[in-house]
Each structure stands twice: as C-alpha cells, then as structure tokens.
Write a protein that binds this DNA or RNA. Structure first.
Length: 456
RNA sequence: UCCGCCUUAGCUCAGUUUGGUAGAGCAGCUGACUGUUAAUCAGCGGGUCGCUGGUUCGAGCCCAGCAGGCGGAGCCA
C-alpha cells in the first residue's frame, strides 16, 4: 500500500472508512492508561498534525504507550470522523509500527516545549521537526516555486550562471577563494586548477547579461557568496539570489517588473500556504498577512534619491548619521522612509554615480545613475537593481584599466548589437523574512553560513 | 570589523549588590484519569555554574585573558 500524506487525509482526499498508511514523526502522545493513546503525527506535508488513536488492544500497545516526541512511526488504520475539537478527521489505528525510537527522551533536543530560535540554530539538523521551521521550509519552497512560475508564465528563461568565477571586480563585496593548491602554498595561481585565481560568485548578473542581450527576458536564481565579515540579522555568507534581466527596457520598466513580480509572488504564497501563514500570524508576527495584503493592493511609492534626501532633511528626526546629498542612505534613513514616511514599499531611484557600481547607466544629468532600491518595512533593502550602461564609451569611462581588460567580453556586448537593458537582484532569504515575519535571516535558510560558523 | 549585552540542570532563566560548593518553570521519568489535543493531578531523578589563569582560608559571585552566542552599526541582497 502506498503511503498517504497527512495533508491528503486532513483535506478529505480519502473517504471515511478507507484504510490508509501514514508515515511520520510523533509530535506528542497523550495516553489514557485504561484505554488508548492519542498520537499526533506530522509528516511535513502540511502544518497540521494527524491524530492517530491507538487502542489498548493493539499487540504492541505497551511500546506505543511509551512513544514520545521525535519517534518515527508507520500507522495503518482507517480514516474516521473525529469527535474531538481540534480536527474533523483522525485515524483509528489497526497497527502502529515503531520505525525509529528516540534514545534518551530526556535529552532529545526538540523536547515538547517552547525553544528559543537561538538554541534551535545549534540543532539545525533537528529544527525542521518544529512547527516554526517546518512552516518556514514550506513557505520558502512556495516562494521559490512562485518565482519560477512567475518567470515561466512571463516568458523568462532560467539561465544557470556559474558558481565559480574568475571575475573579482564586481565590487559587490569580498570573495571566497576557490583553489586546489595545498594550504599554505605559495605557488603562483598559474599552477592552480584553473590556471588563474578563481572565486565563488557574488552575483550572476555579469554572466546573465550576455543571455539577456541574446534571448531578451532571462533570470538567474542560485546561491551566491560574500566573504564580508558581516554579523547582523540580515546578512549571510551564502545566500540565494533571484536576478532577472530584461532587454529593450529602462529603469521604469524594471521598477514595474519588480513591483508586479513581488505582488505576484506574495499573493501566490498567501494562496498556497494558508495554514503556515496563519501560524506566522498567530505566533510570530500578528501583522504579516495584513501587511502582505496591503503590499499586494498598493501601488509602490517612487521617489528620486534627491527627493528622499529632501524628505529626510526636513522630517526633523534626529539621525545618527547626517543626511547629505552624495552619501549613501543609512539603514536608519531607509527605515524611516519605508516604515514612517510611506508605511509600505518604496522604490528609490537615481542615486549619485559615485556610490554605485560601474555598470549602472549614467543619467543625462551626468551626476546620477539609473539605479533603484526597493525598501520594505521591517527588512529594509530587499531589491537592488539598475539599468545597465549600454554605451561602450560611457561604460569604459567608469572602468579601471584592470576591469576593462578582465571584462573584455562584457565590453564586447556593447560593440555587437548593444541594447538598453536592466536587471535587479532580490535576496531570497530577505523575502522569506518579509513573508514569514521571522526576524533573523539565519532562520530563513536551512543551514546558515555566517562568519565563524559553517556547522552542519 | 566596531560598540554593547550574555554564557548556571535537556531547554528558558533566577542566584552576582553583602564571596561560605546551587533554585524555579518547562521537558523527562513513575503513578492516577475511557476522548485527549499547551491535557490535567500527585510524586521522583537531574548541575566539572563557557574555558584558562589570578586574588582569597574559601569563588557561580571579585580580577585578567580567551572562546562562543545575541543585539545594533558598517558593507550589502
């Protein structure tokens, strides 16, 4: 008999009276010594547990009555209406096979009680057994599926850009070195595996642009790596990034894409994960669902960087860092704009060229570039993007000699059929935080990599 | 990397002011209860007080160093 998912049983995909087989892990067991035990079983297929009623007449009832949190079991039984309050369906067990017991129940790391997220990070191999991390895993999956679905339905090609790169000039932060030379070796990089210095990618953007300037709408979605010594609740050394790139498009086309894309993904997740989202609303952040709905129904507020500076100067709020045209907006400034001034997502565009990367398109004013950041309450910057400089001469003026030489192929794109194009990067884990209300990015990815910690 | 806080039972913490080798809740275990669902009720066991060194007759408590964690900042997604 094929196993049935808990989700299918609870969704009435199986008729009352039918026999099913369910596999899963025990969440809790409540026994009535005289008669029978209630076993809450979770198999990850949905947020809810399935209640299994095990009668005292079962041959191995003594062992069943000792089941505790974490035990793996296989249940064969019939689906029944449940007279209890917490659920409308349950399983009357005909057999409960103990597949894997828990050694030393007292020290089982996921005891039947509340645990701090900080503690659960130290048992990252077992934290998906908890309600919270099961829900995060399902929502994260729903987000990634929604991302692919959106792009597929809108004619984008998923381009798999390389993880290993020889480019060290993107300016997106420090890089992890990739080498097969023995530790401590002072051999020249010409003797290394690739015959040159190589690194883990910080962004697929430079590699996706050639595909954009051949196939138009494309995106890359994969892991990226930053060796920055960042110790915050919003940074990881390894994180996943979604990077669409569109041709024959300018910054306003890009901002429109970002807005439509974000709204689509959010409503998709609300529709597909109602139980998980209800849990986040009840236990993590009371405003999540309402907040996401507001974003879906809103029109993103746009403002120029210069306007943003004006607003910040006039708001009369004492900031730790001064607001001056030409300096990048600080976290406190971004938070004020999105959380207090607007109370929703904000798209800030046209930043001073000095604080942005060489590939961003120079505006006609000669002092700003066509860059944008999408800021959201609670998380801050969730998307960063720009129209790319498609004019060879202007691009080269903003490159150093070394960069010009290394990115000869990137410059080639501006010589052979160049076209206006634009793209953005969205940090998946930041989106997971925003959608779930989880406050630490280390809880938005299964096994977080941060400075000084690559456990698991 | 900088600033601040923290590290005591399986987990969350109290105990540090006034140095005299530790306490609660939850979890676990045992028992009671014919349908529970944060089950309830009664009882029981459980601790190299982060590590190293120092002061002292005596250190969880005072001092120094180190390690790890968390929060904020910078960098960014």
């Amino acid at each position: 008999m094929q196993p049935n998912a808990v989700k299918a049983v609870l969704a009435h995909a199986v008729e009352v009276g039918e026999t099913v087989r369910v596999n899963g892990w025990v969440k809790s067991r409540r026994s009535s010594k005289g008669g029978f035990s209630f076993i809450a079983v979770n198999d990850g297929s949905c947020f809810a547990d399935l209640q299994v009623v095990a009668d005292g007449a079962l041959a191995n009832y003594n062992a069943i009555a000792e089941l505790g949190a974490g035990c793996a079991i296989e249940v064969v039984g019939t689906v029944a209406e449940s007279p209890g309050r917490g659920q409308d369906r349950e399983i009357q067990a005909a057999a409960v096979r103990i597949v894997g017991a828990v050694e030393e129940p007292e020290s089982y790391p996921i005891a039947k009680k509340r645990h701090s997220f900080e503690y659960l990070r130290t048992v990252a191999h077992l934290r998906p057994r908890t309600n919270t991390f099961g829900a995060v895993a399902r929502v994260r999956n729903a987000i990634t599926q929604a991302v692919h679905r959106y792009f597929d339905e809108h004619g984008f090609l998923w381009v798999n850009t390389p993880i290993i790169t020889a480019s060290d000039c993107e300016g997106a932060g420090a890089l992890f070195r990739v080498t097969t030379l023995p530790p401590g070796s002072d051999a020249p990089s010409a003797q290394d595996f690739f015959g040159q210095d190589t690194f883990l990618t910080v962004s697929g953007q430079l590699n996706v642009e050639p595909y954009c300037l051949s196939l138009d709408k494309v995106y890359t979605f994969g892991p990226t790596f930053r060796a920055e010594n960042s110790n915050t609740s919003r940074h990881l050394a390894e994180f996943w990034m979604v990077e669409p790139e569109i041709a024959f498009a300018d910054l306003s086309d890009l901002a429109a894409l970002a807005e439509d894309f974000l709204k689509s993904v959010l409503s998709d997740v609300l529709e597909r994960c109602p139980d998980d989202m209800a849990f986040f609303r009840d236990r993590i952040d009371k405003t999540v669902i309402e907040r996401l709905r507001q974003v879906i129904d809103s029109t993103f507020v746009h403002m120029d960087y210069s306007q943003a500076v004006d607003i910040l100067e006039r708001c009369g709020k004492p900031f730790e860092f001064p607001v001056v045209w030409g300096a990048d907006l600080q976290s406190e400034h971004e938070r004020y704009l999105t959380e207090e001034h607007v109370g929703g997502p904000v798209v800030v565009v046209n930043y001073p060229k000095e604080i942005k990367a060489f590939y961003m398109r120079l505006n006609d004013d000669g002092r700003t570039v066509a860059a944008m950041d999408v800021l959201v309450p609670g998380v801050g910057e969730i998307i960063g993007g720009s129209q790319r400089e498609e004019r060879l001469k202007v691009l080269e003026q903003r490159m150093t000699e070394a960069v010009k030489e290394e990115l000869w192929w990137y410059r080639d794109l501006r010589r052979y059929g160049s076209a206006p194009h634009a793209g953005f990067g969205l940090g998946l884990e930041r989106l997971v935080m925003y959608v779930t209300g989880m406050e630490n990015i280390r809880d938005a990815i299964p096994f977080p990599r941060v400075p000084n910690n690559a456990a698991f």
